[in-house]
Design a protein around this nucleic acid. Structure first.
Lengths: 330, 330
DNA sequence: CTGAAAGCGCTAACAG
DNA sequence: CTGTTAGCGCTTTCAG
């Protein structure tokens, strides 16, 4: 492994000159540049980033904390963030926290020790006080999908509540007259908001009754069993809004097993807009602009890192209705 | 940000002692340990890992290169690797290569410069010569799913060929008498092997004909359209083996659209064993032991890093048939 | 335009 | 059991 010293020696210049050449800052004569370049090629020299980091106090690495990369929402987010990070020259450390506060703390610690330049956190469970360590080190943080109203942390979400409303409105438009709702964990802010949206739109109808709301957990199997319960309670329901696509898929399964035809007998809509093309009928959904969300988070984080004055902060992204087969009138 | 120096000063000992205390090597008196511990708490001191890395020549970080985290196979792999890495105290840098040779090269370079302790590569496109840089730096590498027979790189795969055979055998057992095959990209070794397995088992039957093999690309949509073509060619086929689960899901969709009932009219089996519970009917598959694969890769990488003598190398993992609804006889 | 030198924060001999 | 010291490889003043 050649070092900058080797290069400087062989090129007959000082390490400072090589460093200047490498970083394209400061003056380096044409001739010097040429020989240095040649020597670098010859030695196949590559700067050691660790040393660079130690000297320059920046690592060009960011941490990405997500609950669980197995949940298909997060690969999409991770991908968009990685792409954006890549363009900025950053590398991404992936951390699965499993919504486990302890793991979260541990990872924050690790990332801090590894001197990452910033962290993007998508967490259901994180609390303002968990961020104390970060605030103290004044390391840039961007939060996804979990807003601390009282707080100064930059964060991005989508119009969850409006989305829930939109879902119901769409089902109504498609002719539904008894809509059930499969809601996600009540511990999750965005989940609660989606359910609030459902209530906003359904409270003003004559068919609404609280028992149309079933409680679940954002998983396929959860959606499946909650759907079964709902079906037992309300055999004549004709529409379902699930707070995420995974549960909607589970609901679909339960409905089909119960002999209900989707969309003819019951229409189903989910939330998130993850790519679930493998499902028949294709699932209508309230889509989040996941890619944009990730990209914006990264843009904002870089702004924070570079201490740019006017970074984007606390944006709430719009959601869009994507109508597919599962809510269609044949 | 307190440093080891601050701690040593305040504790009235030398940095060496603090370092010894931190690393639990060498002797530190009970009293010294106590005061150091107190000072660390008071200062909220955390060792700077970058400095540690520079001094100790190890970063406790590994790189993970995958084609695309959006393909549901890779989150599972990534998760298992991250879990294992975590246990060993390693952090994972995630790199999406998109099967793009240039991106791969670029990432290898970046990881090298960041001085990662090792790299796990899952790539369809990587060639032995791309690994030259690594070999030269003698940095540990473990390959997944892409074996260079001629080469000395540690790599793990599964019994792809046997799996293909197994799939056909299962369909035959279930009563199929005309089985089509949706094969994946021919550029991918494991894909070719699965198809070879299909041929092994089907060549010896009387119904086999080459036009029963349709060429596709490992995606849902690819499986969908290839299935349509196969159906046009062989309307009376009664079994389908797709080289991965995503294509199998696409095939299912095409079959259902064509009015075929699965499994009654046509039975379908995939490959990989990714969690696709959202599909109805549930998909039979030839499952890879993904979690174990990732775990073993990490174990092996750590063995390489630590230069342990007897590391696991070049294992071929067995696959297992998981029979679900899609190949069931009702 | 260039070089010497002082760190960045930590580890690891080595000498007490 | 403890302290001194020499780096790890690079960046960055600050004089030339």
């Amino acid at each position: 492994m050649a070092t900058i010293k080797d290069v400087s020696k062989l090129a007959g210049v000082s390490v400072a000159t090589v460093s200047r050449y490498l970083n394209k800052n400061g003056y380096v004569s044409k001739e010097a540049a040429a020989t240095i370049s040649a020597v670098i090629d010859k030695l196949n020299y590559r700067p050691n980033n660790i040393a660079r980091s130690l000297a320059g106090m920046k690592t060009a690495t960011i941490g990405l904390m997500v609950p669980d990369i197995l949940n298909p929402f997060f690969p999409e987010l991770a991908r968009s963030i990685e792409d954006a990070a890549n363009e900025y020259g950053y590398t991404v450390m992936l951390c699965n926290t499993d919504n486990d506060s302890l793991k979260e703390q541990k990872y924050i610690d690790t990332l801090l020790q590894k001197q990452v330049d910033g962290i993007i956190i998508s967490s259901y469970t994180i609390e303002p006080e968990h961020l104390n360590g970060l605030q103290k080190q004044s390391i840039p943080v961007v939060l996804m999908d979990n807003v601390f109203s009282n707080d100064s942390v930059v964060s991005f979400t989508v119009e969850n509540r409006r989305g829930g409303e939109l879902a119901v409105e769409h089902l109504l438009t498609q002719g539904c007259s008894k809509i059930a709702h499969i809601c996600g964990p009540l511990t999750i802010t965005s989940s609660r908001e989606r359910t609030a949206g459902f209530e906003d739109a359904s409270r003003r109808t004559d068919w609404f009754t609280p028992s149309l709301i079933g409680y679940s957990d954002f998983t396929v199997n959860g959606g499946y069993s909650t759907m079964k319960e709902l079906l037992a309670l309300h055999p004549n329901l004709d529409g379902v809004f699930a707070s995420n696509d995974l549960m909607a898929a589970g609901a679909l399964k339960a409905l089909q097993e119960a002999g209900k035809r989707v969309p003819r007998d019951v229409k189903v809509i989910g939330f998130d807009g993850i790519g679930l093309e493998m499902i028949t009928p294709e699932l209508s959904t309230i889509a989040q602009p996941i890619y944009e969300l990730g990209k914006t988070a990264m843009d904002s984080l870089v702004g924070l890192i570079r201490k740019e004055p006017d970074i984007v902060t606390d944006r709430v992204f719009p959601v869009t209705l994507i109508a597919k087969q599962s809510t269609m009138n044949e």
